Deep mutational scan, measured.
Amino acid sequence: KTYTFRVRIVDEETGEEKEIEVTAKSEEEAKKAAEELKKKYPNLKVELE
């Protein structure tokens, strides 16, 4: 079973919002993916929905 999570990304500089879908095998995995995004884009606000 896989879970699909919507991750909302807000670029703090431009105020631009993007939504991406993360497919993960567990909620834990999705959280890790969101953390990776935060590391990659430090000025983005990442929200897991």
Rank of each mutant, 00 (worst) to 15 (best):
K1I: 11
K1E: 09
K1P: 10
K1V: 09
T2A: 07
T2Q: 10
T2Y: 14
T2P: 06
T2H: 09
T2D: 11
Y3T: 03
Y3A: 02
Y3H: 05
Y3G: 02
T4C: 14
T4M: 09
T4S: 07
T4E: 03
T4L: 10
T4R: 11
T4D: 02
F5G: 00
F5N: 00
F5I: 10
F5H: 01
F5M: 04
R6Y: 12
R6C: 11
R6T: 13
R6W: 14
R6I: 15
R6E: 00
R6M: 13
R6Q: 05
R6P: 00
V7K: 00
V7H: 00
V7D: 00
V7S: 00
V7P: 00
V7A: 03
V7Q: 00
V7W: 04
V7I: 15
V7Y: 11
V7E: 00
R8S: 04
R8A: 02
R8T: 08
R8G: 02
I9N: 00
I9K: 00
I9F: 11
I9P: 00
I9L: 12
I9T: 03
I9Q: 00
V10W: 13
V10S: 05
V10A: 03
V10L: 10
V10R: 12
V10F: 13
D11H: 03
D11I: 05
D11Q: 02
D11N: 13
D11E: 03
D11G: 01
E12C: 14
E12Q: 11
E12T: 12
E12W: 08
E12R: 10
E12S: 09
E13C: 14
E13W: 07
E13D: 09
E13T: 12
E13N: 11
T14L: 03
T14N: 04
T14A: 03
T14Q: 02
T14W: 01
T14D: 02
T14P: 00
T14V: 01
T14Y: 01
T14S: 07
G15W: 03
G15K: 03
G15Y: 02
E16T: 07
E16I: 09
E16F: 10
E16Y: 08
E16C: 13
E17I: 14
E17D: 04
E17K: 06
E17V: 15
E17A: 10
E17F: 14
K18W: 15
K18L: 14
K18A: 08
K18D: 05
K18I: 15
E19I: 15
E19L: 15
E19W: 15
E19S: 13
E19D: 05
E19T: 15
E19F: 15
E19G: 03
I20Y: 10
I20M: 07
I20H: 02
I20V: 09
E21M: 14
E21T: 13
E21K: 08
E21W: 15
E21H: 09
E21N: 07
E21G: 03
E21D: 05
E21Y: 15
E21C: 14
V22G: 02
V22M: 07
V22P: 00
V22C: 13
V22L: 13
V22S: 01
V22K: 00
T23I: 13
T23H: 14
T23N: 07
T23L: 12
A24I: 03
A24M: 05
A24E: 03
A24S: 04
A24Q: 01
A24H: 03
A24N: 02
A24K: 02
A24C: 14
K25V: 12
K25Y: 14
K25L: 11
K25N: 14
K25E: 13
K25W: 12
S26P: 00
S26L: 01
S26Y: 02
S26V: 01
S26I: 01
S26E: 02
E27S: 06
E27G: 04
E27M: 14
E27T: 06
E27C: 15
E27Q: 10
E27A: 10
E28W: 11
E28I: 08
E28L: 11
E28M: 08
E28N: 07
E29M: 06
E29L: 06
E29N: 03
E29Y: 04
E29K: 02
E29T: 03
E29Q: 06
E29G: 05
A30W: 09
A30E: 00
A30Y: 06
A30D: 00
A30V: 06
A30M: 08
A30S: 02
A30K: 01
K31S: 07
K31F: 12
K31N: 08
K31H: 12
K31W: 14
K31R: 13
K32W: 12
K32P: 00
K32A: 13
K32T: 08
K32L: 13
K32H: 11
K32F: 10
K32I: 11
A33K: 14
A33D: 02
A33G: 04
A33E: 05
A33R: 10
A33T: 09
A33I: 15
A34S: 05
A34E: 07
A34D: 00
A34K: 07
A34I: 15
A34L: 15
A34W: 15
A34Q: 07
E35Q: 11
E35S: 08
E35A: 11
E35I: 09
E35W: 11
E36R: 09
E36K: 08
E36S: 07
E36W: 13
L37A: 02
L37H: 02
L37Y: 09
L37D: 00
L37R: 01
L37V: 04
K38N: 05
K38L: 10
K38Q: 13
K38I: 12
K38C: 10
K38D: 02
K38Y: 12
K39S: 07
K39Y: 07
K39P: 02
K39M: 09
K39C: 08
K39I: 09
K40C: 10
K40S: 06
K40L: 12
K40V: 08
K40P: 02
K40Q: 10
K40I: 10
K40M: 13
K40F: 07
K40R: 11
K40N: 06
Y41A: 03
Y41R: 03
Y41Q: 03
Y41V: 03
Y41P: 02
Y41L: 03
P42Y: 04
P42Q: 05
P42G: 05
P42C: 06
N43R: 06
N43Y: 11
N43V: 04
N43H: 12
N43F: 10
N43K: 07
L44K: 09
L44D: 03
L44F: 13
L44M: 13
L44Y: 11
L44N: 04
K45M: 08
K45L: 11
K45Q: 08
K45H: 08
K45Y: 08
K45S: 06
K45D: 04
V46H: 04
V46K: 03
V46R: 02
V46T: 03
V46N: 03
V46W: 11
V46Q: 03
E47L: 14
E47M: 14
E47D: 09
E47W: 14
E47A: 07
L48G: 05
L48V: 11
L48W: 15
L48Y: 13
E49D: 10
E49M: 14
E49A: 13
E49H: 13
E49P: 09
E49C: 13
